[in-house]
């Protein structure tokens, strides 16, 4: 394939079968798992789709003009995607990122020329969102794209991820993805629901260590503006241990070197797959591999015992 530039080379990611991890790959009533490899995007994560769509939408409505500075709260991948797009299109970028994110993410952002403002580890992404909102008031000329509430985020998946999945897997019965900004699930979920009426849309969200939930009270909680729970049919909370266990199984059995959040997504996909298999029904379950494992090597996720790795990951943001 030939493209005009890197930003034109996103999407159209491969969908690969998991014959070894699927409960029943062949025979009567197959229950098959399919991984959509979003690490094959230009900066290595699914966030390239949303970042590019949000920039294009802001350019189209005149909010973003040459020389502007973009501001965004991010735990990493969206920042890296935005940093690449900003570099190619001539914008500055300020990322507000919780300090408990991997060193690789910081190094990548700095390499792309982004400025990082750290928010306290306690409070996780909630705190990054709050800090970014304060900065947006302080610096009104900065343009906050705000992935948690920007319709272009979900629209990128409605127009890209969803149609690609249906094209490659017309027999799809379940779609499983991570729940962060909720953009992937809302956009892809809405598209698939329109085309495949009985489709099940399943969310996997990370369950972090205590530190990340360090809110002062319940009312400081956060639900992204994009989130509409009527799009989903189930939602799983996945511990670091289970996410890591599945991340390692992906390498061990299928040769896929994925990031930790993809392990959490696989964990939810397998919970559903086992139910379908036990009920002697068939299913084609597509799930998202959101990024590769490269950015998490320093967290210790891929070395030592599972228990040790899970303990090291406690208190880190891995999705």
């Amino acid at each position: 394939m030939r493209y005009e530039s890197l930003v034109d080379a996103f999407g159209d990611t491969p969908l690969v079968g998991l014959p070894r991890l699927s409960p029943r790959w062949e025979g009567e009533n197959p229950v098959r798992l399919w991984a959509k490899l979003e690490d094959r995007n230009p900066t290595g994560s699914i966030k390239d789709r949303a970042a590019l769509a949000m920039v294009q939408a802001a350019e189209a409505d005149g909010r973003l003009t040459p020389g502007c500075t973009i501001l965004e709260p991010t735990s990493g991948n969206t920042g890296i995607s935005l940093a690449m797009v900003a570099k190619l299109r001539g914008y500055g970028l300020v990322c507000v990122m919780p300090e408990n994110t991997s060193v690789e993410r910081r190094q990548l952002l700095e390499m792309f020329g982004a400025r990082i403002i750290s928010s306290p580890a306690a409070g996780g992404s909630n705190q990054a969102v709050a800090t970014a909102k304060q900065l947006a008031q302080q610096y009104p000329d900065w343009v906050m794209l705000y992935q948690y509430g920007n319709p272009a985020n979900a629209q990128a998946h409605y127009e890209g991820t969803g149609p690609e999945l249906l094209r490659d897997l017309p027999t799809i019965t379940h779609f499983v993805a991570g729940l962060g900004t909720t953009g992937t699930l809302m956009g892809t979920g809405r598209f698939l629901r329109e085309k495949v009426p009985d489709i099940q849309i399943i969310a996997a969200e990370p369950r972090y260590g205590e530190l990340v939930y360090g809110l002062r009270n319940i009312d400081e909680g956060f639900v992204p503006e994009l989130y509409d729970d009527s799009v989903l049919t189930s939602r799983f909370s996945v511990t670091s241990y289970d996410a890591l266990r599945r991340t390692r199984e992906l390498i061990e059995h299928e040769g896929i070197f994925a990031g930790v959040s993809s392990g959490a997504i696989l964990h939810a996909a397998l919970s559903i797959a086992d139910r379908v298999a036990t009920a002697d029904k068939s299913a084609d379950i597509a799930f998202i591999v959101a990024d590769g494992g490269w950015k998490y090597l320093s967290t210790g996720a891929y070395s030592g015992s599972l228990q040790q790795a899970a303990e090291k990951l406690e208190g880190q943001l891995w999705a």
Partner: peptide, 17 residues
């Protein structure tokens, strides 16, 4: 259920069960 409270039974969100 309070908007900012999530309750899970065996890791599954009760809003869907």
């Amino acid at each position: 259920l309070h908007r900012f409270v999530n309750i899970y039974v065996n890791d599954e969100d009760v809003r869907f069960t």
